[in-house]
Computed example of a mutant assay.
Amino acid sequence: MLASSVKKASKKNSAEVTLADGYEPSEDEEFMDERQLAYFRQALENWKQEIIGESKETLAHLQDGPIQEADLNDRASSETDWGLELRTRDRQRKLTTKIEAALRRIEEGEYGYCQVTGEPISLDRLKARPIATMTVEAQEAHERNEKISRDQ
């Protein structure tokens, strides 16, 4: 198995990975060959583990007990902070589902290809957002259609 170290790219959107031998996917090789798939599988697994770790930390804080601030303003501030933290964890739970779907696409041989056009998704896009399911062009068209639907 290939060892890796995580470089935190955009904690919000991805987990960048560098394989032990320094490998990084490039446009010069066959798209979604074995090494590219291993690279993205590792990136997705690392990202998922990071999210799970953060969720465990939140759960541990929640188990510490209720907020017991004497001052009403401090208590309100603490409750607001907890509300934000719980919403963040809910978004991350949904993100974990998308990561698992991307891992399934790797296993099924569909990873890296646009679900709308069937065209390869650029490596730069996949590095930035390994859960991407559409090319930039297809995503933009999808968002335009969504906006039109909402406006009507």
Score class of each variant (00 low, 15 high):
residue 2 L to D: 07
residue 3 A to Y: 05
residue 6 V to T: 11
residue 7 K to H: 13
residue 10 S to D: 13
residue 10 S to N: 09
residue 12 K to G: 03
residue 16 E to R: 15
residue 16 E to H: 12
residue 16 E to N: 06
residue 19 L to P: 04
residue 23 Y to N: 08
residue 26 S to I: 00
residue 28 D to S: 12
residue 32 M to S: 11
residue 32 M to K: 06
residue 36 Q to M: 15
residue 37 L to M: 08
residue 39 Y to R: 02
residue 39 Y to F: 12
residue 41 R to W: 06
residue 44 L to W: 00
residue 46 N to F: 03
residue 48 K to R: 13
residue 49 Q to R: 11
residue 52 I to Y: 08
residue 53 G to H: 07
residue 55 S to I: 04
residue 60 A to Y: 02
residue 60 A to S: 03
residue 61 H to M: 13
residue 62 L to V: 00
residue 62 L to D: 05
residue 63 Q to C: 06
residue 65 G to V: 06
residue 65 G to Q: 03
residue 71 D to S: 12
residue 72 L to V: 15
residue 77 S to Y: 09
residue 77 S to V: 00
residue 77 S to G: 03
residue 80 T to A: 14
residue 81 D to F: 00
residue 83 G to Y: 01
residue 84 L to I: 10
residue 85 E to I: 14
residue 85 E to A: 05
residue 87 R to V: 15
residue 87 R to D: 11
residue 90 D to G: 13
residue 92 Q to R: 13
residue 92 Q to C: 06
residue 93 R to V: 00
residue 94 K to L: 08
residue 99 I to R: 02
residue 103 L to D: 01
residue 105 R to K: 11
residue 106 I to G: 01
residue 106 I to C: 02
residue 108 E to W: 05
residue 108 E to I: 08
residue 112 G to F: 01
residue 113 Y to P: 03
residue 117 T to G: 15
residue 118 G to A: 05
residue 118 G to N: 07
residue 119 E to C: 06
residue 123 L to K: 02
residue 126 L to Q: 04
residue 128 A to V: 09
residue 133 T to M: 07
residue 134 M to F: 15
residue 135 T to G: 05
residue 138 A to T: 13
residue 139 Q to C: 01
residue 147 K to E: 14
residue 149 S to T: 10
residue 149 S to L: 07
residue 150 R to S: 12
residue 151 D to Y: 01
residue 151 D to N: 10
